[in-house]
Amino acid sequence: MTPLLEIENLRVSFPTTQGRIEVVKGVSFTLGRERLGIVGESGSGKSMTGRAILRLIRSPGEVTAERMMFDGTDLLSRSERAMRPLRGARMSMIMQDPKFSLNPVMTVGAQIAEAVRAHESVPRRALANRVREMLEAVRINDPDRVARMYPHEVSGGMGQRVMIAMMLIPRPDLLIADEPTSALDVSVQAQVLDLIDELIVNNGMGLLLISHDLNLVARYCDRILVMNSGEVVESCDAADLHAATHPYTRGLLAAIPRIDETRDVLPVLDRSAWSGT
């Protein structure tokens, strides 16, 4: 069976006044119907990797790769128009902050329905039913009322549930979740992630979870890639994260505070250990 996603030597660059700067420098991985986590600090290129897969990097940004296959078809050679049937319908992305990622002047219901209507023509009534079912699936009580609300009228946690509903309603095979909980309160973070996890596992989808939170990724993913300044520095099973060998990963792990610890000072990353400067 071909893997869902095969990426080989993915590079993303942007022009600056000092010439082109590569933000992703040759990332390779494959993803089946499993949960893969990408962790790294801000600017490590993890979000850019996610967006490059959906071909969302717009000019003047540039994406190159030796291989970028989704379910046996080449992504790189597709035109913008040819990407459209894939986007949403086969691979989808949950964005970071529902405050900014939902259109402020469209009702929640209309935005969810649009995700279906972009790919198939469904009669009005059947569409409304499907939206209601999807809202129920993301644990929204009173889905009919919520469907008529505007994004500014819902809370952050509810907004992110709406986002999940919108991205999963066309039943895609691959979901990219780009920091899906970093804009939410800690108390709702776990609820939202449990929900994503449940829907992914039940539907047999692939998940690419992008986060800066090592613990969170270790808990919700099968495998983990650790990225630093555009490169994958470590790749391991989630269960073996504690046995990571790269000094960057070790440094990150050591910097996680524990509730029962007695350390007065948290260690600082010693970047000279891997960058060689």
């Binding site: 459209r84 949403g88 900014f100 990622s101 995700a115 066309p170």
Partner: peptide
């Protein structure tokens, strides 16, 4: 440049829309 424009593109909405 707003995020919800990216959201719309992720959904596979046509460029005209």
């Amino acid at each position: 440049g707003q995020e919800y424009i990216t959201t719309a593109r992720v959904k596979g909405v046509s460029e005209w829309r």
